[in-house]
Design a binder for these strands. Structure first.
Lengths: 239, 239
DNA sequence: GATATTCGCGAACGTTGTTCGTGTCAAACA
DNA sequence: TGTTTGACACGAACAACGTTCGCGAATATC
C-alpha cells in the first residue's frame, strides 16, 4: 500500500493487490493530488474545494479524507507534486555553477507559478517536503562549487529559496488576473494608467520615475534580481 | 463624512454633523480597521471573522459592510494601517543612504510581521495603498542618493519591496507558531530535531551542513540578506 | 460459506462571508 | 412643534465551505 510519503507507519509495504474496479478508478493519494492540481489550474484557488475535487473523481468529499488529512495537507502535497520534476530537469555540467543555479531557480519559479496561489502555501516555512528538499540539496551543491564557507552557503540557501517562492507567488498572482482579462499588455496598460493618475505632489518620486517603472519584462526583472542575489552573495561574507 | 478612499461617489462631501451617540461609539471605517488589527493580534488570522470584529464593536456583522466592501478590503486596509508609521519614523540624515534604507526596510518588516499573516495580503501585487506608496517614495529617494540610473532604481525598488514583504511574511509565520508554543529556542529545537532525523543518503548536502544551517539568529540572517541585496544592486547594472 | 476488515460516501454539523429587508433615530423641513 | 426623510444599524437568512459520523457494501481471510 505504497501511498508515497504519507503513510508514516510503513508496516505494510507490500502492495499485495488492489481491489477490482467497478468501472471506476480506485482512489489514491496521488490521484487526488493530481486532480487537485487540475481543478486548481482550471478553476482557480478559491474554487478549489474538497467537494469539487471529489466530484471530479466521481465520489463524495468524505472519501478524500482517507488519503488526505485536510485541505491544507492537500495543498502542501500539490505544491510538492508541482515541483517534482525541477531537479531532474537540471542542466548539464560543463556550464559554470552560477548558470546552473540560475536555471534551477528559474525552473522552480516556473513550476510553482504555473499554478495560481500555490507558491503561497507554506510560504515562510522551512521546506520539509521531499521535492523541496531535493531542490535545496541541489542549491547547496551548486553553491559549494563557488567555494563559499558553510555559513554563507546556509544563509544563501535560505535567501535563494525565499526569493524563488516569492517571485513565483508574484508571477502566479499576475497570471491569475491575466487569465480573467487580457493577455499581458492589457495588464501593463492598467498599471500604466494607475501610475499616470497619481498626483505628482503626493508621490513625486514615483511620478518622476515614470516610464522606467514599467521598463523591462517580468522575466528580465526576475533574472536581474537573481544576478543581484548571486553577485551580492559572492561579495558579502557572513558575519 | 470622510471615509478615506472608500466612498467612490463623493456626492455628499459635507460633514454636516454627527449623530448624538447613545452611549455607543459611532462606527467608522478607521475604527473597524483598528478593531480588526486588535482581533488579529489577539486571536490570529483564522479567527479574524467579520462576526468577531462586529461583536468586538458591539454590533452585527452586517453593519460593517457599510464601511468595508468585504473581508479582503478590510485586510488590505488593515495592512495599510499597520505600516502607517514606518516612513514617519525614518532615521535622521547625516547617515549614509544605505543605513537609512536598511532602517526603512527593517521598520517595514517589523511593522508587518507584528501582525500574523498580514504580510501575505496582496503579496505579489504592486503596492497601491497610500502608506505602501509612501514607503516606495522613500525607497526611491534613498536609492537615488546612490547615483543609480532610473531603470536600476525601478527594478531595485521592486526587488527590495518584495524582499521586505517576504521576510515579514516569513517572520510572522514563525511568530504564529511561537505564540502557541515556546518562546523561540523551542522552535529552533524542533527544527534541529527534524534535520537530525534526516537520512544522510537521501539528503547528503543538508546533513553535511549540519549545524551551519541553524547558525545565526533570524535578525542576523535578515540583515545579511539586506546587505546582499544592496551590494548586489550596486554591482549589477540593469540590462 | 462465514467472518472480519477495509473503504466509499450520504447526511449532517458548525461556521463562514455576504445580502436583504425592516426597524430606528437624528436631522431637515414645514 | 409636528412631520417627513434619509441614513444607519442589524436580525435573519442564504449558500457554500471544511470536516466528522456512521452505515452499507465490497473484498480479503479463514
Amino acid at each position: 500500500m505504497f501511498v508515497s510519503c504519507y503513510a508514516l507507519s510503513m508496516t505494510t509495504p507490500a502492495p499485495i493487490s488492489r481491489r477490482a474496479r467497478p468501472a471506476k478508478v480506485p482512489l489514491t493519494r496521488e490521484l487526488i493530488v493530481r486532480t487537485g492540481l487540475m481543478v486548481l489550474d482550471r478553476d482557480g484557488m478559491d474554487a478549489l474545494t474538497m467537494r469539487k475535487v471529489a466530484q471530479e473523481l466521481d465520489t463524495g468529499a468524505a472519501s478524500l479524507y482517507v488519503y488526505v488529512k485536510n485541505r491544507d495537507d492537500l495543498l502542501v502535497a500539490m505544491l510538492d507534486e508541482a515541483i517534482a520534476d525541477v531537479v531532474p530537469q537540471t542542466s548539464s555540467r560543463r556550464v559554470p555553477w552560477q548558470k546552473r543555479l540560475t536555471a534551477l531557480i528559474d525552473g522552480g519559479v516556473e513550476a510553482m507559478s504555473r499554478h495560481q496561489g500555490l507558491a503561497l502555501v507554506s510560504f515562510g516555512n522551512i521546506p520539509t517536503s521531499h521535492n523541496a528538499m531535493l531542490i535545496v540539496e541541489r542549491m547547496i551543491a551548486l553553491l559549494k562549487e563557488g567555494n563559499l564557507d558553510d555559513t554563507t552557503v546556509s544563509w544563501a540557501v535560505d535567501l535563494l529559496y525565499l526569493y524563488m517562492t516569492a517571485v513565483a507567488a508574484e508571477q502566479s498572482a499576475h497570471n491569475d488576473s491575466a487569465s480573467l482579462g487580457e493577455t499581458e499588455a492589457g495588464n501593463v496598460q492598467k498599471v500604466r494608467e494607475h501610475f499616470e493618475s497619481l498626483s505628482a505632489e503626493r508621490y513625486p518620486m514615483i511620478v518622476a520615475l515614470g516610464e522606467s517603472l514599467l521598463s523591462g519584462s517580468g522575466d528580465q526583472r526576475t533574472s536581474w534580481g537573481l544576478k543581484v542575489l548571486l553577485n551580492g552573495i559572492i561579495h558579502t561574507p557572513a558575519e
